[in-house]
Write a protein that binds this DNA or RNA. Structure first.
Lengths: 142, 142
DNA sequence: CCTGATTAGTTGGTGACACGAACCATAATA
DNA sequence: TATTATGGTTCGTGTCACCAACTAATCAGG
């Protein structure tokens, strides 16, 4: 049996691989699909995106510019602080990220089918505890 | 509570983040630490590495060349097929990957401390089932 | 044994994407 | 009003992804 550490790492690589594959189907990279995922339910500033994606702010500038060039997102200047922009999902971006999410859901469902139903429920609980516990500890909004 | 899908994705991002941070401490990228991790217990060919890392073989050429330039790995020509090279962990590479693995183990241990001991055991079992089940299905050697 | 096909790995080109330093415009503070 | 801090961008540099094309070596078939 895999150790805790190897198990967590291997599972993470596996899930990343599924996500990358689905992102690639829409001509997107992993970080692009993460960006669009974040924008599904909020309109963060560049700084906030940098924090959420754990990237340098200059990386976020490039990432958002390339996504904007493809019509996936748009930048909205703040009305209260002229230094600030908020990033918003464009219609095309929403279409792409929803389609990707749907395919990825199929992949995860198929993966979890390796477990009996009761174990899936147990896993969901444990994963939720880890993710929300970790986010709490780091002061991150999911 | 997070859905199965969001939970798996968030957990994967979290674990990747821990790994990336530890890799960066040794001046390594995620894919570099993955490469060294693979080389801990085998000496694969370039083709095998391409398969394990799910990368184009030209990407593996670059990755191995950069690692070789840093003294982390070395290429050994095959004695049975002059087209083939096998990639081996060098002493420095072994030092780096063991140190990284140790730090990452600490991170994972701390993360799992969010769960009671019985749940950790349960999680390890479930994760093992998923990872080995998936590998079996894909015909992958872990 | 020779020839054509296939394979292993490399090279070159291209674009994405990471970071750090420096910059400009704007906001906040003294 | 002047100074400091902040938000985002630009520029330079290096990694890293893929694809096409290449070279050298191996394999299969006649």
């Amino acid at each position: 049996m895999l150790s805790d550490v190897d198990g967590m790492a291997q599972l993470a690589f596996l899930v990343m691989s599924l996500l990358e594959r689905r992102a690639a189907e829409h001509g997107l990279s992993l970080v692009q699909i993460r960006l669009l995922g974040i924008l599904r339910d909020r309109t963060p500033t560049m700084q906030e995106l940098a924090g959420l994606l754990e990237l340098d702010k200059s990386s976020v500038t490039g990432l958002v510019s390339r996504a904007e060039a493809r019509g996936l997102v748009s930048r909205t200047p703040s009305t209260t602080d002229r230094r600030v922009v908020q990033v918003t999902l464009a219609a095309e971006g929403r279409r792409v990220v929803e389609a990707g999410a749907e395919s990825f859901t199929d992949d995860v469902t198929e993966l979890l089918a390796l477990l009996p139903p009761a174990s899936r429920t147990t896993l969901r609980r444990l994963v939720d505890t880890l993710v929300t516990g970790y986010a709490s500890r780091r002061g991150i909004s999911l």
